[in-house]
Simulated scan of single mutants.
Amino acid sequence: MYWNGGWAWMAFMPLLWIALIGLVVWAVVRLTQHSSGRHATEPRWTAKETPEEVLDRRFASGEIDADAYSEARKHLAAHRQVPP
């Protein structure tokens, strides 16, 4: 009489482990997305930078010097397409 419900625990335990592992994976993904600087609810495709923003960011971080920055700005302005 003592082991009558044992089969239910044997069926339940794998489901419990799958749920626990899924929760850990979800938490890791959620935390790494949030630490990338975007809001967790903001999709990645909405955070696209314009060429000017990329250039500004690279200049601000010191990747390019003032001469390269001004040349690139002139080049971008000259080749900007005018909307119809």
Rank of each mutant, 00 (worst) to 15 (best):
M1P: 05
M1D: 05
W3E: 04
W3N: 04
N4H: 01
G5K: 05
G6M: 11
W7I: 15
A8N: 04
A8Y: 02
W9D: 09
M10R: 05
M10C: 13
A11C: 14
F12G: 11
M13C: 13
P14Q: 02
P14W: 00
P14H: 01
P14K: 00
L15G: 00
L15E: 00
L16Q: 03
L16Y: 09
L16S: 06
W17P: 01
W17C: 05
W17A: 04
I18D: 00
I18F: 10
I18H: 00
A19F: 06
A19L: 02
L20W: 15
I21N: 00
G22A: 03
G22R: 01
L23E: 01
V24Y: 05
V25R: 05
V25F: 11
W26Y: 15
W26E: 12
W26F: 15
A27T: 12
V28W: 03
V28R: 04
V29T: 05
R30I: 01
R30K: 09
L31V: 07
L31F: 11
L31T: 07
T32N: 13
Q33M: 10
Q33N: 12
Q33R: 15
Q33C: 07
Q33H: 09
S36N: 14
S36R: 12
S36G: 09
S36A: 11
G37R: 01
G37E: 06
G37Y: 06
R38P: 04
R38Q: 12
R38F: 08
R38C: 06
H39A: 14
A40M: 10
T41R: 14
T41V: 13
E42V: 11
E42D: 12
P43F: 08
P43Y: 08
P43W: 08
T46V: 12
T46K: 14
T46N: 11
A47V: 12
A47F: 11
A47N: 11
K48C: 06
K48F: 11
E49W: 11
E49S: 13
T50K: 15
T50M: 14
P51A: 02
P51L: 04
E53C: 08
E53D: 12
E53S: 13
E53W: 09
V54W: 06
L55F: 04
D56T: 11
D56Y: 09
D56C: 05
R58A: 09
R58L: 15
R58F: 09
F59E: 07
F59Q: 09
A60C: 05
S61V: 10
G62P: 02
G62F: 03
G62H: 02
I64G: 02
A66K: 13
D67A: 13
D67M: 07
A68T: 14
A68H: 07
Y69H: 14
Y69M: 07
Y69K: 10
S70K: 10
S70A: 12
E71D: 09
A72C: 08
A72Y: 07
A72D: 09
R73W: 09
H75D: 15
H75R: 14
H75Q: 14
H75W: 15
L76Y: 02
A77M: 05
A77W: 04
A77N: 07
A78L: 05
A78S: 02
A78N: 04
H79F: 01
H79K: 02
H79S: 02
V82S: 04
V82H: 04
P83S: 05
P83W: 03
P84W: 00
P84H: 00
P84S: 02
